[in-house]
């Protein structure tokens, strides 16, 4: 920086250095692109592994006894193994025990809670025809009240065996999951709400109800076709 002490008051904008400006900026841009790409390429496998591990952990949580998992998506007619570009709403993960038997399916569901979306993962066991696990992936519910959906043991107990039996026609559920006021649960397909967190627990119930109504009949029908994959999904 070579600033001089006596700058002429009538200094004009320097016009001769347009090329230098272009050169400098593009140069920096190229350098930046290079740096970013290198980082991206370098961290890509690690990140993928981390993400997969995190998802697997979640699946293990909702499907007891699972050792390996496999991802599938619904293409409108049948399930095919995941390619990695599918939207989340189309994905489903199958879990298998050590011996390779199907332990169930893990599905994401989204509900609109008190302070925004609540994203959950639930486990469906076609053998029991029931939901067997539940895990909150993301929620902004009020700490201390709404976040009881993640912590309240009584509420979580709902999902240890929540009946989602497929109806006789095979296309719909016998009983859709419904919400019951705290302490007033009477049927196996009812979710016992939380006092003081009514909106959040209702939102969860609704999310599960919508998702199961769509997915459970399909999965139940195709349950025989899921076999453990040799390699993990992406």
């Amino acid at each position: 920086m070579s600033e001089t002490m006596t700058i002429a008051p009538e200094q004009k904008a320097a016009t001769g250095n347009s090329n230098k400006m272009l050169f400098a900026m593009v140069g920096i841009g190229l350098m930046c692109a290079l740096l970013i790409v290198l980082t991206y390429e370098g961290t890509k496998p690690i990140i993928a592994k981390n993400k997969a591990a995190a998802l697997e952990q979640a699946i293990f949580k909702v499907l007891p006894g699972t050792m390996t998992t496999a991802g599938y998506y619904w293409d409108g007619n049948a399930f095919s193994p995941l390619k990695g570009t599918e939207a989340e709403g189309q994905r489903v993960y199958a879990g298998f025990s050590e011996s390779g038997t199907l332990t169930g399916f893990a599905l994401p569901a989204v509900g609109l809670g008190y302070a925004g979306e609540i994203r959950v993962l639930y486990g469906y066991d076609p053998a029991q025809e029931a939901l067997v696990g539940f895990y909150v992936l993301e929620s902004k519910e009020t700490p201390g009240l709404g976040d009881k959906i993640e912590k309240d043991p009584a509420f979580l107990a709902n999902f240890e065996a929540l009946s989602v039996a497929v109806g006789t026609d095979g296309n719909s559920l016998k009983n859709e999951i419904t919400y019951a006021k705290s302490g007033e649960k009477q049927n196996a397909w009812e979710v016992d709400g939380i006092t003081g967190a009514t909106i959040s627990s209702k939102a969860v119930t609704e999310a599960l109800s919508t998702s199961t109504a769509e997915w459970v009949p399909r999965l139940y029908e195709a349950k025989e076709r899921f076999k453990p994959q040799t390699q993990s999904h992406e």
Binding site: M25, I28, G29, M31, C32, L35, I36, T39, Y40, G42, T43, I46, I47, N50, K51, A54
Partner: peptide, 20 residues
């Protein structure tokens, strides 16, 4: 540009360290 580059780098680095 320079700042954005390093932020992107940091972003990926943190993701690599811990998804959580």
């Amino acid at each position: 540009l320079i700042i954005a580059t390093f932020v992107t780098i940091t972003d990926y680095a943190i993701m690599a360290i811990s998804v959580e």
